[in-house]
Design a protein around this nucleic acid. Structure first.
Length: 155
DNA sequence: GCCAACGTTGGC
DNA sequence: GCCAACGTTGGC
């Protein structure tokens, strides 16, 4: 089993939105970054654990946990001219963009803020603190996952 | 295939 | 709203 972090803007879709769905699942669509695409297409597997990260909001940080319930499959929005995520260069024979489905697992009582994550001395590999923190789908090492999870639960 | 220009992300 | 850090595009 692997660990991941998915970003979302809570103004558009938050962990509470995920939790409030009748079946508590959601397709993670609209990712249009090749590095993130490669993870979604090739690496993310059923049962993997996912930190849900809130970005571009008052308190940015890790808000809770989800679990992958469907591995990578073509993102239908790329074929829809009406969609914001439409990509005219993508074909059904050779889809360019992929997505996965996740289900709600838990919401932390308080968000683990990015400022705290950055101040944790052993958290050095996660994409949040590398590459300018701009990747929207990133792997999390198991040792870092454990530390982040424990810290989030203490808050 | 290089690289400048441009667009986007995202923390602050 | 600013701006730094990236990613993408397109001319050559």
């Amino acid at each position: 089993m692997a660990y991941w972090l998915f970003k979302t803007e809570p103004d558009a879709f938050s962990i509470d939105d995920l939790n409030s769905r009748p079946d508590q699942t959601e397709p993670w669509d609209g990712v249009r970054n090749y590095q993130a695409r490669n993870f979604l297409r090739d690496k993310v597997a059923i049962g993997d654990q996912v930190f849900i990260y809130h970005s571009s909001c008052k308190i940015v940080g890790i808000a809770g946990v989800a679990e992958v319930v469907k591995a990578g499959y073509p993102d239908e929005t790329q074929f829809n001219p009406e969609s914001n995520y439409y990509d005219p260069k993508s074909t059904r024979e050779n889809p360019r963009w992929f997505r996965v489905d996740v289900k709600f697992v838990e919401k932390f009582e308080s968000v683990l803020p990015l400022s705290v994550i950055k101040a944790m001395p052993n958290i050095t590999e996660i994409g949040l603190v590398k590459k300018g923190g701009r990747l929207s789908i990133m792997p999390v090492e198991e040792t870092e996952w454990q530390q982040l999870y424990t810290t989030a639960k203490m808050n």
